[in-house]
């Protein structure tokens, strides 16, 4: 780890970070602020309950969870936030993670800046590890900003949120995005052409997302859904139970750790880094 390089990388991304923070806060605010207007309507709830169970299952929902989470009279704010904001958080922030991650080595190699860094006494793996940590730090910032956006919103509407449970959901979402960041970093070290690495990572991400959506339609092949990282993101479950499922945590931390270490090994053993 190099703190100077960490600082520089955060600084080089400062405008992107700023933009994402504004976007996430606005998104969270928007979802919270329109809550009063849908709180009384039962139509959406009726609609959700009318969906086939297999489909609800793909969101991690059961009729039981729906009753508990959303109440019988319409959506609770917690339920509304999870449905409209937290549910999409990993895919939205995952876009940032994969854009940054897939360029960690490949963009430096393509621009030639890697030659400048590696003209000085620094290990190749230090560069990759430091940039990965910089990405995690930025993601943590986006997580905090999201929570802040929610909190800000609750100042203006009736009925608060269960902050503990919302945070717990964000922790799982954060782990999902960390896993995305890690495999993007690995691809970046494997494929030095940044256009190709971003295409590969983006392709995997889109395929995972679609695969997870398709689980109800897959029938006997539903196990395929487990190949998707999004499969393990269960925000409703987390809110309902008030705890993280160990299996999801294990998968996310496992993928993150393995891909990260693999990336370090790959960059160290590459025959060319330019």
């Amino acid at each position: 780890m190099s703190f100077a390089l960490l600082r520089v990388n955060v600084r080089l991304s400062q405008w992107a970070i700023f933009g994402w923070i504004v976007f996430l806060v606005a998104y969270a605010l928007f979802v919270v602020l329109i809550y009063p207007s849908i709180a009384q309507s039962t139509g959406l709830l009726e609609y959700m309950k009318s969906l086939p169970e297999s489909m609800l299952g793909s969101f991690g929902l059961t009729p039981e969870i729906i009753d508990e989470l959303f109440g019988k009279e319409g959506f609770s704010l917690d339920g509304w936030l999870v449905t409209e904001f937290l549910n999409y958080w990993p895919i939205v922030v995952g876009i940032y993670a994969f854009m940054f991650g897939s360029g960690i080595l490949s963009r430096e190699a393509d621009r030639g800046t890697i030659e400048l860094l590696l003209s000085h006494p620094v290990q190749r793996y230090t560069i990759v590890a430091t940039k990965f940590v910089a990405l995690l730090a930025i993601l943590a910032l986006l997580l905090v900003a999201s929570l802040a956006g929610v909190l800000l919103g609750t100042l203006f509407v009736e009925g608060g949120v269960d902050l503990g449970r919302m945070s717990l959901v964000l922790v799982q979402a954060g782990m999902a995005v960390a896993a995305i960041a890690a495999y993007s970093t690995l691809v970046s070290c494997l494929v030095l052409d940044p256009r190709r690495s971003v295409a590969i990572v983006g392709g995997i991400m889109a395929a995972s997302f679609i695969l997870n959506m398709l689980v109800p339609a897959l029938g006997a092949a539903a196990w395929l859904g487990k190949l998707s990282l999004f499969y393990y993101y269960r925000p409703f479950d987390v809110v309902f139970r008030g705890e993280l499922a160990a299996s999801s945590t294990l998968v996310y931390l496992g993928v993150t750790g393995v891909c990260f270490l693999a990336a370090l090994v790959v960059v160290q053993r590459r025959r060319a880094v330019i």
């Binding site: 621009r111 030639g112 800046t113 030659e115 400048l116 590696l118 003209s119 000085h120 006494p121 620094v122 290990q123």
Partner: peptide, 16 residues
């Protein structure tokens, strides 16, 4: 890394 501690390099294509 040990070697680079003791050398200075001006690359042919400088990218900053």
């Amino acid at each position: 890394v040990e070697i680079k501690r003791r050398l200075g390099n001006i690359p042919g294509d400088i990218a900053l």
